[in-house]
């Protein structure tokens, strides 16, 4: 119980810090508008050019919904936690955490979830508004049930992204600068997670490669559930794969962390 209270405090800390900088977050949401304008205009031109009702299994409305919700979700899911952790390691800020009676990874995860709560609320409200404006199913109940179901993959994808970033952040124990690595990871996630274009639109080779990687479970899978474009079997299998990846990455991050800390020489801070 006591240990849970520690992480609740960390969660509240993250929440408060995000509320403090809410203007920044609203601005970053507003900055998505440009990407959205390009993508929606591009798809409108493609659909009107081809004259087809459906392309790659998506109607125009579904594609529009995919593009908007994937852009919003990628805003919510991506984090700079990798920079935060690697800076802690590099600048000696980690020292103060090592002597305290809590797990560093759980502390960072709690802070992240606190930060994401505020963002998630705003983004989910925007997605509900989108569901009302762009009804994807003739029956709006189906649309909203997909929305409720998608909350599970969305939460899992946040955890998945956290552990992926955490593992790469631990590289700061061995390399001097992880700035480019963080940048690179975010771009790879943008490409292979389906944040810009749905995975099934990409070349077959990329689709095949991405099958064996966790990235598509960060954006593509939750958005697919959100658009109602899935079978029940696919949903349960997808959630199982997400949980599997989280467990594997969680264990790997613990191993990396313990090994890194054992080699860590605390200077500065």
């Amino acid at each position: 119980m006591n240990s849970l209270l520690k992480y609740k405090r960390a969660y509240a800390l993250g929440l408060k810090s995000k509320l403090e900088y809410r203007f920044d977050f609203l601005m970053s949401i507003a900055s998505c508008a440009f990407t959205l304008i390009v993508l929606t205009t591009l798809w409108r031109a493609i659909f009107s050019n081809s004259g087809a009702e459906k392309l790659y299994g998506y109607s125009f409305q579904q594609m529009l919904f995919y593009v908007i919700s994937s852009t919003l979700l990628s805003k919510m899911i991506t984090t700079d936690i990798m920079n935060v952790i690697s800076n802690d390691i590099k600048d000696g800020g980690l020292n103060k955490f090592l002597v305290q009676p809590f797990s560093y990874s759980k502390y960072r995860l709690s802070v992240l979830l606190g930060e994401k709560t505020c963002e998630a609320l705003i983004i989910l409200i925007l997605i509900i508004a989108l569901l009302i404006i762009l009804p994807l199913a003739s029956n709006s109940i189906i649309g909203f049930s997909s929305f409720l179901l998608s909350l599970i993959p969305i939460l899992l994808s946040t955890l998945l992204n956290f552990y992926l970033s955490f593992i790469l952040a631990t590289l700061a124990f061995w390399v001097t600068d992880t700035f480019y690595l963080n940048f690179g990871l975010n771009v790879v996630i943008l490409i292979l997670s389906g944040a810009i274009f749905p995975i099934d639109v990409l070349p077959k080779m990329i689709v095949n490669i991405s099958r064996f990687l966790p990235f598509q479970y960060i954006i593509f899978f939750p958005v697919k559930v959100l658009t109602g474009n899935y079978l029940t079997r696919e949903l349960s299998l997808g959630i199982l794969i997400q949980v599997g990846y989280i467990l594997i990455l969680g264990i790997a991050s613990k191993l990396f962390w313990n090994y890194g800390v054992s080699k860590h020489i605390a200077v500065g801070g």
């Binding site: 493609i46 081809s50 392309l55 480019y180 690595l181 690179g184 771009v187 490409i191 639109v201």
Partner: peptide, 27 residues
């Protein structure tokens, strides 16, 4: 590392071109 990250960004741009070719979009 900087060049590699730029290459990732370039892949992102090429994806737009790829989609245009794939759909035969005429602008």
């Amino acid at each position: 590392a900087g060049v590699l990250v730029e290459c990732c960004f370039l892949t992102l741009k090429l994806m737009y071109v790829f989609v245009v070719f794939l759909t035969g979009l005429s602008i």
